[in-house]
Design a protein around this nucleic acid. Structure first.
Lengths: 161, 161
DNA sequence: ATAATTGCAAACTGTTTGCAGCACG
DNA sequence: CGTGCTGCAAACAGTTTGCAATTAT
């Protein structure tokens, strides 16, 4: 379990303790990561309960939060407002394309030119520290999966008040 | 109160009723919009309570949701995970730059070339329906406002697991 | 009339916190 | 050993829901 080891390395790097629960969570994260799909904290919790780990909710949240801060985990916001996590790919800077229906996540590297971002910051008097690009759509598998709940038909959308 | 009228027009356009509560909310939205800052639903609720409108929480949420769907209101996700709303500017397509500290919001039009977005969709087998670009930083007024809670020092951030 | 909308209170989801005990280094 | 980490339960924030009463068309 090489990847799990690297997750633990992240903790050590940050001079945090290599505790039993963290080991277990690291491995579960890797397992969940195999599919490439993002998972919710709730899912992770269930997985952990299933294996009688005895790890508490708070610990999971705290661990996830740490790993997200360390950028070992990506935090992904779905179109429906829910949230998921997944181990980062090996790429460096990237953004996410997610499926509205199944929450599948794909990383891509396309980005705005840094110069243009800087220009906006300068123009508006902001120090820009970070940015995020999210693409939302339907993956091939989900296409044709009819109506998305509560969607307003495009011709009823009013732009530019 | 011209803008408020336009909010109501949005409802009519969608063949929804022009009710008393909606009128009141529309005007409050415009008032809150003057500052250019985004507001939380909670703030809007307090404002409404302050003026003894007698409008209930559920109504506010339902109204906000409708207006966001109609794209009359922008829904803005802040860096800290909280959420705000504001009347759209008159511009068409745009994205948001927000201040981590004060939640000030600035609109900008810089975007990814549609062709590149399409290319990603094609490559990944997704039908891309929507996208969002968020820039996060500190506005001039907030800069110097020291430590942001729980921030991991940059040299401790591990990239590319 | 009559179907949409409202207000209320209660339910819910996702996340955080306080604290006593445990365990890593 | 001492501090950081853990588990628990309870608290919390934001949002949604069921339903009976109300109101715009």
């Amino acid at each position: 379990m090489d990847k799990a080891e690297r997750v633990m390395a992240a903790f050590r790097e940050f001079s945090e303790r290599s505790t039993q629960p963290r080991h277990v969570i690291a491995e579960k994260l890797v397992a969940l990561g195999e599919t490439g799909e993002a998972f919710s904290v709730e899912t992770l919790l269930e997985e952990l309960r299933r294996s009688d780990s005895g790890i508490g909710r708070a610990t999971v949240y705290r661990t996830i939060e740490k790993l997200a801060q360390l950028k070992v985990l990506d935090r992904i916001d779905f179109a429906d407002g829910s949230r998921g996590y997944r181990l980062c790919g090996t790429k460096g800077h990237h953004h996410h394309l997610t499926c509205r229906a199944c929450h599948r996540v794909v990383e891509f590297e396309l980005c705005l030119p840094q110069a243009k971002i800087d220009a906006i910051g300068r123009r508006e008097g902001f120090t820009i520290e970070d940015h995020e690009i999210s693409l939302y759509g339907l993956c091939d598998a989900c296409r044709g999966d009819k109506v998305l709940k509560g969607k307003v038909p495009k011709d009823k959308v009013l732009k530019g008040l």
